[in-house]
Amino acid sequence: MEAQVKASTRTPNVTVLTDSFSIPQLNRERRVWLYLPNDYATSQRRYPVLYLQDGQNMFDEATSFVGEWGVDETLSQLQQSGQDQGCIVVAVDNDGQRRLDEYSPWRNEKLGGGEGDAYVDFLVKTLKPYIDANYRTLPGREHTGIAGSSMGALISLYGGLKYQDVFSKVGLFSPAFWFAQQPLFAFVKAAKIRQSTRFYFVAGAQEGPTMVPLMAAMRDSLCQVGAAQKDISYQVRPDGKHSEWFWRREFSAAYQWLYAPKRQWWQPHRLFRTQK
């Protein structure tokens, strides 16, 4: 019996930039997706950019693992309703078998890893220059973010801290900090916060015994190395699971907080709040 082919759910705002974007740092190729704002073709405006991991899960049910995030529908609706001015999204597929290798700079003895540094270098030194050269971006760090879920969150945090001159917004959905706990926390301690950066944490209370404690510890570690309390949003959802449906639901709130104008940024009553 043949497997049923899922219908595509991506909107016209989304295209596949290429199925074979070169990653010279790793000597391999990858599919890269591009979302353009509703008015991109009819305006001369420049737009902020968000770089996402696990690209096959961001826009299209047909390519997703167990469901897509609906990033295109969410951003298009926010712009159409006047709640957002528009954002370019660049999403890079994971490699499947080598996902764990690429999404951690450090090796886990049982599971792999160790290629994350080269992967982040690709995002910053190869992919971003191409996007900035070919699309109307706002290339400065104040308009550039990086985000992901699980292992994609781990590598997003690493990239955001390694390249603080490039990224000012980091979205962390159910981060898999357990994968490289000791070297990651040591890296954060050494990296320090050199420039104002927003961090959005979100996870579910039902994601396992280490998820929330490690996320809280990372929030505290960032504060200890210079992150301002107003620059961190920390959310624990009682019903949250380690799943695409959960991250899809939470994406809009995360995006709006990370990309809000500075005058709307600080909501003191939400800082460090854990929902019960």
Rank of each mutant, 00 (worst) to 15 (best):
E2D: 11
D72M: 05
D84N: 10
S43W: 04
R270A: 07
T18R: 15
S174L: 00
P213S: 14
G113D: 04
G148K: 04
R10M: 09
Q97T: 14
L17D: 02
A180V: 03
V166Q: 06
V166I: 15
Q195N: 15
R270M: 09
V5W: 02
H143Q: 12
K276F: 15
G208S: 12
S8G: 08
E2I: 13
Q195H: 15
H143Y: 04
L50Q: 13
V32K: 05
V188I: 12
V32D: 00
R237D: 11
A176R: 01
D39S: 10
G70T: 10
A153M: 08
Y47D: 01
W33V: 01
Y103W: 13
A62Y: 03
A205R: 13
Y47A: 08
W266S: 15
R45F: 04
Q275F: 15
Y40R: 13
D231Q: 08
R31Q: 05
Q25V: 14
D72C: 05
V120E: 00
Y130C: 09
G208M: 04
G226C: 05
S156I: 05
A91M: 14
Q4D: 01
E250D: 12
G171C: 01
T15L: 09
S64V: 03
A254V: 06
M151N: 07
M218S: 01
R45Q: 14
R141I: 13
M211E: 05
F179C: 00
P24K: 14
K262H: 12
Y130W: 13
V120Q: 00
D220G: 06
D117V: 06
R141H: 07
Y47K: 09
S76Y: 00
R237Q: 04
R99Y: 13
T197P: 04
D19A: 09
A118R: 00
R107H: 10
R98I: 03
G159M: 11
S156C: 10
N134I: 15
S43A: 10
F122A: 03
V49A: 15
P183L: 12
L138K: 14
Q275G: 07
G67Y: 01
L17G: 13
R198I: 02
A191E: 09
G112E: 02
E2Y: 08
R31P: 01
A62R: 02
G208E: 10
S76P: 04
V225Y: 00
K276W: 15
L127A: 03
R219N: 14
S22Q: 11
L26G: 11
I193G: 08
P209A: 15
G160E: 04
Y130N: 11
